[in-house]
Design a protein around this nucleic acid. Sequence first.
DNA 1: GCCGTTAGGCTAACATTGTTAGCCGTACCG
DNA 2: CGGTACGGCTAACAATGTTAGCCTAACGGC
Lengths: 183, 183
Amino acid sequence: MPRRAGLTVDKVVELGLSIVDQSGLDGLTLARVAEAAGVATPSLYKHVAGLPDLRERVAGEGIAGLSDRVRQAVIGVSGDEAVRALMGAYRAYLVEFPNRAGLLVAPPPAAGRREDLLAVVLAVLRGYRLEGAEAIHAARILRSSVHGFAVLEAAGGFGYREDLDESFGRLVDVVVAGLRSGA
Amino acid sequence: MPRRAGLTVDKVVELGLSIVDQSGLDGLTLARVAEAAGVATPSLYKHVAGLPDLRERVAGEGIAGLSDRVRQAVIGVSGDEAVRALMGAYRAYLVEFPNRAGLLVAPPPAAGRREDLLAVVLAVLRGYRLEGAEAIHAARILRSSVHGFAVLEAAGGFGYREDLDESFGRLVDVVVAGLRSGA
DNA sequence: GCCGTTAGGCTAACATTGTTAGCCGTACCG
DNA sequence: CGGTACGGCTAACAATGTTAGCCTAACGGC
């Protein structure tokens, strides 16, 4: 076992993310990360500035992961299909990683990552010939509805899990219809 | 200064809620509540079982507050107007108390409170002649979209605040149209 | 290949918070 | 008037975040 653990910021953030997946947002603690890294707690300060900084970075990573998934999902499709793919991928991400829901609403410098996601949404909406402010409104509608559903599902906010696929399908239909009508 | 502070569970929860409003969810700490109550920290254990319990109760109160607002908003209106009023009240609540957004997704025994909210939504949907599973799907669509928008707005998740009213108006239109078409 | 510098680990120490245990007086009830 | 129980308190402890300062392995320049 090397005297130097060879830790980097990226490894610390990755460990943090997996801890969030296992134990929820409240489980993300410097002590747990240090333990997972095989290192004493204060050593982490050589890589991150503290717990708030780590939280921010983990949130950024979570948003980036979502962004990647969504971007992959819309490759080669357009129009209604792209919207369905985008919403499906968004939901699937939070089904797979429910504990990351809380990461997706962080206001701070994670903003840069959010831009990526917005870019994908806007690209998809280009198929509807929406431009400028119109596209912004449409993007917000799209994101709001899928985010709301996914977050509530991830948190167990719906009474019973039955028919969730059906509910989601209908939500997607409503959004697609809205976009087509030039919402 | 009375030897007995005359504290009750309700007062503790109320103090907790106002602390959440002032300092966010992370600011809700037994120490802060005790200070606000003019009492030593361990004394709180005579009223709540600990921090998790307090969190649950505060969340319940937050959901109850939303429920009340929404219920008030739909009194005397029906159909499309009721849906608009419901969504408007939901959003307005989180605009007024942005820090309560995180309270609305708690899975645990706050479930009872959520039932109330669901009941209001279902009552509103009765105007669309939706029944049984149909009504459940519609309720989820309604709740998902308004929740998503309100949460993202509360967290500053939208880049700029401009035209948010316009965006929200369009979201409401899309949902109303979807419900009318029997989504 | 030596040597200085630095990066990346460590221990020690401390503040804050949550939590438990146990004490003690006040308020109320018979 | 006396007893009980409720609602406060202090003391003590564990866990976490954070700072300070040390020490050494790794690496680069001469």
